[in-house]
């Protein structure tokens, strides 16, 4: 079979090869960095210089521009990990567990920042840094799930075996995501109910929605950039582990 007559691989199969994945996605990194930087510059300009104070909360509404994107990412990153876990268990895609492992520390940090900014917003708004209500407690549980998964990855030497075990734990942990989302509807809570993504439209004026959406995309693209870079590093780390094993076997023979 020559190169011309060989069956053409679709993109799904091509990115299944870790080396090909790195070659194909490396050119995306710099455009992502530039886009993320531009979005943060615009978002911070809007947040501090071109958005009004809220009629009830005053200037503390500006904390929302960093709190909501981090809270969104805390759940979105777990969504990415859940799809990756399915990719590992169902499709056995070689890049799925790489994605799952690379996303966990990022998700943990975004969750910690959501809790941190939330408590700083809560003190002037509700009069308390912390309350053991449904939204805050379930988000804290999410942080512990992330930390547990990171610890599990470090506990295994065989990363392929680890991937299957951790994929199962990740899927079990996914139960917490709808609990976080609907906690404000199911239980009496200090946290306000959804005010952006609602069937009857957002309950905020455009002057506050624009900076919120710009920061939302800035943080989302920050995650995509760091996730891609971390995936490239993970591919290289596995190559390092493979070479070390082969050299050790060669030395022992």
């Amino acid at each position: 079979m020559s190169l011309e007559t060989a069956p053409k691989l679709n993109w799904w199969n091509r990115i299944a090869n870790p080396g090909q994945f790195v070659i194909w996605t490396k050119p995306l990194l710099w455009p992502l960095v530039i886009l993320t930087t531009a979005l943060f510059a615009a978002g911070l300009y809007y947040a501090f210089f071109n958005s009004p104070e809220d009629y009830q909360m005053g200037d503390t509404v500006r904390i929302m521009y960093v709190h909501v994107p981090n809270a969104w990412l805390s759940q979105f990153v777990y969504g990415v990990m859940t799809i990756s876990a399915l990719g590992t268990l169902v499709w056995r895609h070689p890049m799925a567990d790489v994605s799952m492992k690379a996303a966990a520390p990022l998700g943990a940090l975004f969750t910690a920042l959501a809790l941190f900014t939330g408590s700083l917003w809560g003190r002037p708004t509700w009069g308390t840094f912390w309350e053991w209500d449904g939204r805050m407690t379930s988000t804290l549980v999410l942080l512990f799930i992330y930390l547990g998964l990171i610890a599990l990855w470090r506990a295994f030497d065989d990363q392929l075996r680890a991937a299957r075990v951790i994929a199962v734990f990740t899927l079990v942990g996914a139960i917490n995501i709808p609990i976080i989302k609907f906690s404000v509807d199911w239980w009496s809570t200090l946290h306000q109910p959804a005010s952006v993504f609602r069937p009857d439209g957002p309950r905020m004026p455009g002057s506050i929605l624009i900076p919120l959406f710009v920061m939302f995309f800035a943080f989302t693209f920050l995650f995509l950039t760091l996730h891609l870079k971390a995936m490239h590093t993970e591919v290289k780390r596995r190559r390092v582990m493979g070479l070390q094993r082969r050299m050790a076997q060669g030395g022992a023979a």
């Binding site: 200037d59 904390i63 960093v66 920042l113 941190f116 900014t117 917003w121």
Partner: peptide, 15 residues
């Protein structure tokens, strides 16, 4: 940043 400026600054600084 109003009377609660310190909370806003700490939130952005922490992030």
């Amino acid at each position: 940043l109003g009377p609660h400026g310190v909370f806003i600054i700490w939130a952005y600084l922490g992030v």
